[in-house]
Design a protein around this nucleic acid. Structure first.
Lengths: 221, 221
DNA sequence: TTGAAAGCGTGATCACCGTCACAACATGCC
DNA sequence: GGCATGTTGTGACGGTGATCACGCTTTCAA
C-alpha cells in the first residue's frame, strides 16, 4: 500500500515495522493542502500534530498591530504542532500556514504520545529534531543581535540556499527568491530595507538576481 | 545514600527505580563549581552532559568583535550541553558558565544515550524540556523584533521575576537585580540604554529599585 | 584606609533603518 | 486587451538606540 510506503520514507518512522506503521495509519490520515492553507492559529486549542510529507509550511507569530515574524519554515520530515502536545499548556503557540502545496500526515495527540512512549528510537528522532531547531533558533537570536539588516539578508539567503537550493558547478547556489516582504518578515526588517540590501549585495557581486531566481556567489557560511 | 536522594529530586530521573539511579551514578559524578566557572566553550569537542542540581548557569554566544549574547539561563533540573550529544555534529554550540555557585551532575554522553533509549519516560521528559526551551527562544525572537529596548527590559525583568522572584502580598514581585550589562547582553542592547530604561520604568511607577533589589509592580504578562 | 576594579548616570553625537509616499513593473483574471 | 492586484525601486524624513566620554559611586581586597 502506497501510504505505508510514504511513511517509510519519513526518518521519524524509519525504525518502525509494518505492523507499527499500520498502527500509525490507524490513528492518522494523509491530507493534501493548497498553498496558504491555515493549519492552526495562535491561541487555538487542539492537539493535532502534523508531519510534513511534502511541501513546506511556515510558523508565524503576529503582534497586536498586525506585524508578523516568520519563526520557521518546516519541510519534509518535520513535525509541526508538537508544542501544544508536549507542553502541559495545550494552546497553539504559533500560526502555521502552508507555504506551498503540501501533503501532510495528521495525527491525533494522545495515540501519538502512546506510540512514542513505546518506541524509544522515535523519541530519539524527535529529540534530534527539536535540538536542531533549538540550535537554529538560538542562532537567529544571535544574528538579530550581532548583524545589521544587510548581513541578515545575506545570511538568510545563504541558509535558504543550503537547505533548498541547487549548488552549481562553480560552488555557487541557485535559489528561487521569495517576495521581499517575506524575507523582511523572517529577518525582522522592512520590505524597503530588504530591497536596498538586495541591491547592495548585487552591487558587491555577492548575488545576482535573474528573474525570480537568485544566484549566490559563495557567500561565506 | 545522599547522592541517590539528590537524583531522585530531578524530574528527569523521577521515573527511575533505585537500581537505575545507581546505574546513572556509575556513569556520572556530582561536582560543585564556584561562580563564573567555564563548563565548556563554543567550538569545543566533548560529549559531556551537565544536569543542573542547584544554582544557575548561562549559555553565551560571542561575536568576533567580543560582543556577547546570553542565550539562556538554565536552572535546577535543566540539562546543558545536550546539543553536542543529540546532533550529529558534535561541537559545543555555546559557551556555558556558572552564573552562581552550582552543583552539577556530569554525565558521559554514550552511556546516557543508552540509558535514554531504554527509558521512554526519560526521553519524554527531555522532549518536554526541549519544547519549553524552543518556545521560550521563539518568543525571544518575537520580542527582539516587535518590542523596543525599553519594553524588552521590562519583559525581561518580568520573566526573571516569574521564574525566580518571590511574589509579594500585593501581587508585585521582588527580584535581585543583575548588573545592567548582563541585562543588556540578554536583551541585545547596550548597558547605557538599559540604565535609561530602568530609570524610565521607575519613573512610570512600574518598578522600584531598592539597593540590589527591584520590586515589580504588576507589569502585565 | 586606600587603591583598584566594577558598576552606574548622563550628556552629546550620529548612523541605521522604519515609515511614508510615489512611480514603475509584473501578473493574472475577466 | 484592459483593469485589478501584487511586487519592486527609490527618495525624504525622523526616531531609536549604539557609541564615546566622562565623573561619580560601590565593592572589596590588601
Amino acid at each position: 500500500m502506497s501510504q505505508i510506503e510514504a511513511l517509510r520514507q519519513v526518518p521519524l518512522f524509519s525504525e518502525l515495522n509494518s505492523k507499527q506503521l499500520e498502527a500509525v495509519l490507524r490513528v492518522s490520515h494523509i491530507k493534501d493542502f493548497p498553498k496558504d492553507s491555515v493549519l492552526c492559529s495562535e491561541g487555538d486549542r487542539g492537539d493535532a500534530l502534523f508531519l510534513v510529507l511534502s511541501g513546506r509550511v511556515r510558523a508565524v507569530l503576529s503582534a497586536d498591530d498586525g506585524r508578523e515574524v516568520i519563526l520557521a519554515y518546516l519541510g519534509p520530515g518535520e513535525i509541526v504542532g508538537e508544542m501544544a502536545l508536549f507542553d502541559p499548556e495545550e494552546r497553539r503557540t504559533a500560526t502555521v500556514v502552508t507555504a506551498e502545496p503540501c501533503s501532510l500526515l495528521i495525527l491525533s495527540g494522545k495515540p501519538f504520545m502512546e506510540l512514542l512512549a513505546q518506541n524509544p528510537p522515535m523519541a530519539l528522532s524527535i529529540i534530534r529534531t527539536l535540538t536542531r531547531r533549538l540550535k537554529e533558533t538560538s542562532n537567529r537570536i544571535a544574528n538579530l543581535i550581532f548583524l545589521d539588516t544587510y548581513s541578515r539578508v545575506g545570511t538568510h539567503l545563504l541558509k535558504m540556499a543550503q537547505q533548498e537550493g541547487r549548488r552549481l558547478a562553480d560552488g555557487s547556489y541557485l535559489i528561487t527568491r521569495p517576495p521581499q516582504h517575506e524575507i523582511a518578515h523572517f529577518i525582522g526588517s522592512s520590505r524597503e530595507t530588504v530591497s536596498r540590501a538586495l541591491k547592495e549585495l548585487e552591487h558587491e557581486g555577492l548575488i545576482k538576481v535573474v528573474g525570480k531566481k537568485v544566484i549566490l556567489y559563495r557567500l561565506k557560511p
